[in-house]
Every structure is written in C-alpha cells, then in structure tokens.
C-alpha cells in the first residue's frame, strides 16, 4: 500500500473523485497551475484541465458564492480557502446560503460543496495564519464540520465530504500536513512515513462522517480531542503516566455522541483538548454534552486544555500552543479528585 503524508492523501482524494465524477471541480487562490500554497491540488489542473481545476481572484466570498451557484447547477465543487483565517469574508455566503439553502427552499435547491481550509498554528504564522475557527461553523445550523488527524482519515473523510449532499467545512491542521506533530516543537520533525496511518489506499474508500475513532484505549479518563491535538494528547498521556482513552472526534457536526457517552460512562472522567481559544470553543459544547449525558458517571469535574483566549501571538506561539506538558497537567488535574 502506498505511503502518503496528509498533503498527498488529500491530493489523492481529489484526484480519485475528479476521475470518478466529472461534476467534481476544484478551485481557489493559487490552486490551479501552481497546485496550492501547501501543494494539495498539485497536478490536478494538468490532469483534468483548466475548467475543472483553476485559480480564482482573491475573494473568499466570491469563491464560496461561485461554489454555491455551481452546486445549485449540479456540480460538486471542492474549494480551497488558503488559510482558515481568510474565511471570514465568506461568512455571509456560508451562513446565509450554503447552510440555509436546503432549508429555505424546502429541498428544492442544495449546495453540496466542500470547503477545504488549512487551520491551526505551529508554523509561526502569527495571528492571521494560525487560527482554529471550527466552533464558528458548528454554531451555524446546516454545516458539517470535519477535522482529520492523519493521512488515512484525511483521504477517506474528504471523499465522504465530497460525496455528501450537504455543505462540509473541511479543516486541515496544517502543522500535521507533513508529520504527526506531538507538540514537542524543539524535537526533530517525524515524517508520516513512520506512522501506520500513512498507509493510504491509492483508490476510492471512505471514512464516514460522524464517527469518532478511539486512538488509544484506556480505563482512567476519556480525552476528547481532534486534529493536531490527537497527537499532542497521546504524548501528554504518555508523559503523565495516565491510562487515558483518547477519542479522535474527526467530525464535530454530526458528532459521534454514542462513542463519547460510552467512553465517559466507562472511565468516569473527561479531559477536553483543542487548540482553539477556550471561551465558546467547541470544548464548551462537549463539556455541556458530557454533563447532560454522563453526569451521574462523572467522578471529577471536566477539564479543558485549550489555546488561550488571545490572538495567536507570532513569536510566543509555543507559549500559546497547548502542548503535551499542559495536557499532562490537565490529566493530573482531572485525576486528582
């Protein structure tokens, strides 16, 4: 089986879908001839032609609007917003049309679009190339939100997103494009090739939206996390010496509540880890759901380890990033009671 990093896996997903379905088109800023600033769309224009993989003006709202219009026509557009931090100009298109079109037309018109966008920090991108805005999209009824943590899932989830008939926000943690980063920024980069999830089938397969994965079974505490933080949580649990059950949520909407409830019901403790800012972050929703569903199983207060409620500071990013040391402290805190 081929070994792929996340960029190659995402590229392969789009390649497979463009070959299978001629209604799949790919576009965005620098996406066409050049193949994207992170190279995710490399070679697609050459292979499928300029009218199926092309560059766009710097206009995120225009990109989303064009995708929605194409979706209404019957295409399956996959657009790239170069950084998740750049998605805000497109908010009206996402909220007022993409998310609402099926509802407001009672199913007559739909926008089956996929919006790919690199998110998260750890590359010295400062406050405009590091954000994790996933919670914003989960608050908008009508959007699905997906965040993969490894190449195998990235390809299978992206194919599912493209095949899905609802609009999907597909956030790609850019720090793990090339390797499973565990938060130890001062250590040498580990490539994906040494990780089992880099074994990615060349052809078509799917990972269903709405299914969490258990990446580490454990008995003492449940860790709810996604994206880059999956790898950080694994390192943090190792360093804390805690037998943590780590769930990679993979999809935030729809959320795999059953897996979460079963795990917390078993462990009786819960730590939530995400890179995004804390207040009104997706962790707040998770904490509320765990409380609603598992209150009588809980043996200790739920703890959140997250990015601070500040913009992502350029030179201080490793003080901002919730690394394995903070995860380990969080695990100790949740185990203390």
């Amino acid at each position: 089986m081929p070994r792929m990093n996340m960029v190659q896996a995402l590229n392969s997903a789009m390649d497979v879908m463009m070959a299978r379905d001629e209604n799949v088109v790919v576009f965005g800023e620098d996406v066409g001839y050049f193949g994207g600033v992170f190279r995710c769309t490399e070679g697609l224009q050459k292979k499928y032609g300029r009218d199926r993989a092309f560059d766009t003006p710097i206009a995120e709202s225009g990109i989303l609007a064009a995708a929605i219009g194409m979706g209404v026509y019957g295409l399956r557009p996959v657009v790239e917003i170069q950084f998740a931090d750049y998605i805000y100009p497109a908010t009206d298109q996402l909220v007022s049309t993409a998310a609402r079109l099926r509802y407001r037309s009672a199913g007559a018109f739909t926008a089956p679009i996929t919006v790919r966008s690199p998110c998260g920090g750890g590359i010295f991108g400062g406050q405009t190339h590091s954000q994790s805005p996933e919670a914003i999209f989960t608050h908008v009824c009508g959007l699905k939100t997906v965040i993969p943590s490894n190449p195998y899932d990235a390809k299978g989830l992206l194919i599912s997103a493209i095949e899905d008939d609802d609009p999907v926000i597909f956030l790609e943690p850019k720090r793990i494009y090339n390797g499973p980063f565990d938060g130890h920024h001062d250590r040498p980069v580990i490539p994906w090739s040494e990780h089992p999830a880099s074994e990615v089938p060349a052809g078509h397969y799917t990972v269903s939206l709405g299914q969490a994965a258990c990446v580490r079974p454990g008995a003492e505490v449940t860790v709810l996390t996604y994206g880059t933080m999956v790898h950080v949580a694994l390192a943090g649990a190792e360093e804390a010496g805690v037998d943590a059950e780590i769930l990679d949520l993979r999809t935030l909407i729809p959320l795999d509540i059953e897996t979460i409830v079963a795990s917390v019901g078993k462990t009786g403790r819960c730590l939530i880890v995400h890179e995004a800012t804390r207040t009104s972050g997706f962790g707040a929703e998770l904490a509320a759901l765990v409380q609603e569903h598992c209150f009588y199983a809980l043996e200790a207060p739920i703890v959140r380890i997250t990015g601070w409620d500040t913009p992502y500071p350029h030179a201080l990013e490793w003080d901002y990033f919730p690394g394995p040391r903070r995860v380990a402290e969080g695990l100790k805190r949740v185990m203390a009671d």
């Binding site: 088109v25 609007a65 064009a66 219009g69 026509y73 298109q93 007022s96 037309s105 007559a108 018109f109």
Partner: peptide, 22 residues
C-alpha cells in the same frame, strides 16, 4: 430561492453560469 439578506445571490448566479459553461 430569494435571499432575505442582500446581494449574496448575484455571485451565486455567476457561479451557476460558470457551471453551465464548464
């Protein structure tokens, strides 16, 4: 479907017509 918020549909029409051309 007419949008109650304004102008969003204008670039969407352009997108639809791009698809028709594609």
């Amino acid at each position: 479907s007419i949008a109650g918020n304004l102008a969003t549909h204008l670039p969407e029409a352009v997108g639809w017509a791009m698809a028709s051309a594609i």
